[in-house]
């Protein structure tokens, strides 16, 4: 099997990152915003792993492991925030918290 060029892997990672960014900008539901952030983190990890495999180095995979730990911590705090958000405001619309007052 022919090796996948580095550029193609990076293009895929860039497209996934762009889709995640679009989701953050377009959706107003807090859960969807968190999901889009997950997509973006995953795309960044994909870029690391593809680049690491291009040069046969382990650093790409190690960075992916750190991103994985960071995503896990982020999603735990983010979902707890979403629950608290819903209990306080009765909605999941991010615009409901625009005033930042209690």
């Amino acid at each position: 099997m022919a090796a996948v060029p580095l550029t193609h892997g990076l293009v895929v990672a860039g497209l996934l990152f762009g889709l995640g960014l679009l989701g953050v900008l377009v959706r107003r539901n807090v859960i969807f915003i968190l999901m889009s952030i997950e997509v973006m983190l995953n795309a960044a990890g994909l870029a690391f792993v593809v680049a690491g495999s291009r040069w046969g180095q382990t650093e790409g995979q190690i960075m992916f492991l750190f991103i994985l730990a960071m995503a896990a911590a982020e999603v735990a705090v983010g979902l707890a925030l979403a629950l608290q958000f819903y209990h306080r405001l009765g909605t999941l619309d991010a615009d409901g918290a625009a005033t930042l007052r209690g």
Binding site: A76, V77, L81
Partner: peptide, 10 residues
């Protein structure tokens, strides 16, 4: 810190 934060917020 994520664990403590999730406990505190949840």
């Amino acid at each position: 810190s994520g664990l403590i934060g999730a406990y505190h917020l949840g």
